[in-house]
Design a protein around this nucleic acid. Structure first.
Length: 715
DNA sequence: GCGATCAGGT
DNA sequence: CACACCTGATCGC
């Protein structure tokens, strides 16, 4: 939540995202987006009164934000005082003090922030320097480098201060899967469920907030199913959104809400009250977009987690991750930075420790160092640029973020370069993309330590807290490690524990034998059709989770059956990419025809022409490049993000060999993994001692990049 | 009766 | 802890 006071040091005559207290005297107002925590005081009588007595006071925002704001009658009084500024169009504004007549000119440019529809950042340029207020933002790595207006010529502008969204500026959230990845995961889950029968419906348990429209649109476009929402009049002038939402409850995707929707859901009732159609009861699953839950997991493919017999969590973030924030800030390389948000457990000091090394003001005590400002990337070639930048940073930076070389793309994911379609898939690769995170926890295996991050997440799903204790989190950053991921397990374990690293046990639980000892042999599964339709659970978990794995090959559908004992026995199920694919295939061999990859391509394709439309909505990349380029960039970004991926590689390999050999079901899986985690043919299980040293290196922040030879790998 | 604030919930 | 709200109770005007 923003705790920005509203004013910037350089330009105190304007107020941004705060409208109370001192801000009542501002000469101009700016609203970055329509979330309540950025609108404090915006409808207060005091401000209203001020407006009434003034012709000059204006509120500047994006056209979409204006539209959303004025849809609410509570803000109607702003109508004649709002000025919508086009995004990416520098605009001159005169700040006049109405009492003294004093005047100050300032140029402002709205930059897409990728947070929610209409969200923007404000770039101010004037006598006191150039400053950037980010509002809330979610920008992928490298996006700042692609924003023309952050540059003059080919160099990034000399920016005095950045007022930064630091919501996830904590190593805990080192990596958050990209928007595309998250979307894809949700898409495949929704696809596989809704295609079972028309009575299989999905409830997207979204918070009341703008920002999910991107999800709705994509689901609707891909599946041809509109999303039921409570209200849509705010989109009346945004056809690209309006078309994909509906107030007709007879649809298979719902994002409607009700004060007690969770209770209703437990009663198999949608928030809109629907329980059946034409006398046929509906089969409802809920998917809850969450952020923090996933932030700490490194495995990018785990964007969907099953938390109950018919409840899922899906990764979804409106805010940039730790690494995205650092990438952004280090590219801008301002003199000063001011956090707008204190991340969860953090203090201002802590955040500043992270951010200062990325700023110029921190250069004191340091022998001067040349660090050229970044250059505009007109074509994205993320990988190299990324690296270049890093190389130019100071030692502080380096020590704060041990740099882990990235492998060239080709090397890391051989399959992705060729034909992404790859319907047949490559067995090896399929296997390799197997999740690091397993689907169940062996009672014997102690992984509880890794769960710290889980429980924090939020609210509901008590169930999961006890169930999800399997997720392994590994951050490439030492600080990350110590902060959360290993949560005490780490170094102590590594240093003191002469035994095999604990992960070894973890990997074991992937083994088929073990799994069969466990939930695998769950009752039922096959006899399905039980009381209520569930996303079966044949997936009973663990490997079984792999619904797919075993079932889908034989059965054409995900079995529906009562899943007695889910709560008591089931562990949370992580739907891996391959599972999703398998689901896809299993549920409707035909329907599965569309591969994830092609879906992604379409997504990319679709979004591209939308660029202009979407920009104001803040959901698209801001770059102006062609489709191919865009797609490529996504690809590249993934690689760029692979700061974590390289570790994942290692882990992936490790688990690969121990994974179940039900290959054909996963044959397509790699198509999805292509876009996420570099694959490693010939993966093997490292020996415990190697693992041990690997952990040590990780903790020490050393480079553990995988070399060509398996031998080099863990040394 | 309204708004601000806080506790509690999701 | 808070994504970003919402509801309800209390207090002050």
């Amino acid at each position: 939540m923003s705790r920005f006071g509203g004013r910037m040091r350089e330009y105190p005559a304007v107020s941004i995202d705060r409208f109370d207290h001192d801000n009542l005297r501002a000469r101009a107002y700016f609203l970055s987006h329509c979330h309540k925590d950025h609108m404090k005081g915006l409808r207060a009588p005091a401000l209203k009164r001020r407006l009434e007595g003034s012709l000059k006071v204006k509120l500047y925002c994006s056209p979409v934000t204006k539209e959303l704001l004025l849809t609410s009658w509570k803000y109607k009084f702003w109508e004649n005082h709002i000025v919508a500024l086009e995004v990416e169009t520098p605009t001159q504004i005169s700040l006049v003090d109405e009492t003294s007549g004093e005047k100050e000119d300032i140029e402002v440019t709205l930059l897409p922030a990728g947070h929610c529809p209409g969200s923007v950042m404000f770039l101010f340029e004037g006598e006191n320097g150039t400053v950037l207020y980010t509002g809330d933002f979610r920008l992928a790595k490298g996006e700042a480098a692609r924003m023309e207006l952050l540059h003059s010529g080919t160099r990034v502008k000399d920016i005095q201060s950045v007022y930064l969204d630091t919501t996830f500026c904590d190593p805990k959230f080192y990596h958050i899967p990209s928007r595309e990845e998250c979307l894809r995961g949700i898409l495949e889950l929704v696809r596989s469920w809704t295609s079972l029968t028309r009575y299989h419906v999905v409830w997207l348990n979204c918070k009341a907030a703008y920002g999910y429209e991107y999800l709705f649109i994509n689901l609707s476009e891909e599946l041809g199913i509109k999303v039921h929402v409570n209200k849509l009049d705010m989109f009346r002038n945004m056809p690209e959104i309006l078309y994909h939402v509906t107030t007709d409850r007879r649809t298979q995707i719902h994002a409607c809400r009700h004060p007690r929707d969770d209770d209703w859901f437990r009663g198999n009732r949608l928030p809109c009250g629907m329980t059946c159609q034409n006398g046929t009861p509906l089969h409802v699953i809920s998917i809850k977009p969450s952020t923090m839950w996933f932030g700490e997991r490194i495995k990018k493919t785990n964007v969907i987690v099953r938390t109950g017999e018919s409840t899922y969590r899906a990764c979804f973030s409106f805010h940039s991750s730790y690494s995205e924030i650092k990438d952004f800030l280090s590219y801008i390389h301002p003199v000063n930075v001011y956090p707008n948000v204190l991340p969860v457990g953090g203090t201002e000091d802590k955040v500043m420790e992270i951010l200062k090394p990325l700023c110029r003001s921190y250069r004191r005590n340091m022998e001067p160092r040349y660090k050229p400002l970044g250059t505009l990337k007109r074509v994205h070639k993320r990988d190299s640029s990324d690296t270049d930048e890093d190389d130019l940073f100071d030692s502080e930076l380096i020590s704060a973020r041990p740099k882990i070389p990235k492998r060239p793309r080709e090397e890391s994911r051989p399959s992705s370069t060729g034909q992404p379609e790859n319907a047949e898939g490559n067995i090896n690769e399929s296997r390799e993309s197997y999740e690091v995170t397993t689907a169940y926890t062996s009672p014997k295996v102690d992984f509880v330590d890794c769960e710290e991050s889980n429980d924090d997440d939020d609210e509901d799903d008590k169930e999961e807290e006890s169930e999800i204790n399997i997720v392994q989190v590994l951050s490439p950053e030492p600080d990350a490690t110590s902060t959360s991921n290993f949560n005490g397990v780490t170094s102590d374990q590594q240093e003191s524990n002469a035994d095999v690293p604990r992960w070894d046990a973890f990997f074991k639980c992937n083994k088929p034998e073990e799994s069969s000892e466990n939930e695998d042999n769950f009752p039922s599964s096959a006899d399905a059709c039980g009381s209520q339709s569930l996303f079966s659970d044949s997936d009973g978990v663990s490997d079984s989770t792999h619904i797919s794995s075993q079932n889908s090959s034989q059965s054409t559908h995900i079995s529906e059956q009562g899943s007695q004992g889910w709560d008591s026995q089931m562990d949370t199920v992580l739907i891996t990419s391959q599972e999703r694919n398998a689901l896809d295939f299993g549920c409707f061999g035909k329907g599965g025809s569309r591969t994830v990859v092609s879906a992604l391509q379409e997504t990319a394709k679709d979004s591209q022409p939308d660029n202009s439309r979407w920009k104001p909505l803040g959901q698209n990349r801001s770059c102006a490049c062609d489709v191919a380029c865009d797609l490529k960039s996504k690809d590249c970004e993934k690689d760029a993000e692979a700061g974590t991926a390289h570790i994942q590689d290692v882990l992936v390999e490790i688990s690969d060999s121990s994974r179940t050999p039900d290959l054909e079901l996963r044959r397509d899986s790699q198509s999805s993994s292509d876009f996420e985690i570099p694959l490693t043919p010939d993966a093997e299980v490292p020996q415990p001692d190697k693992l041990h040293s690997l952990y040590k290196k990780l903790a020490a922040g050393e480079n553990i990049m995988r070399k060509q030879s398996p031998e080099d790998r863990y040394n």
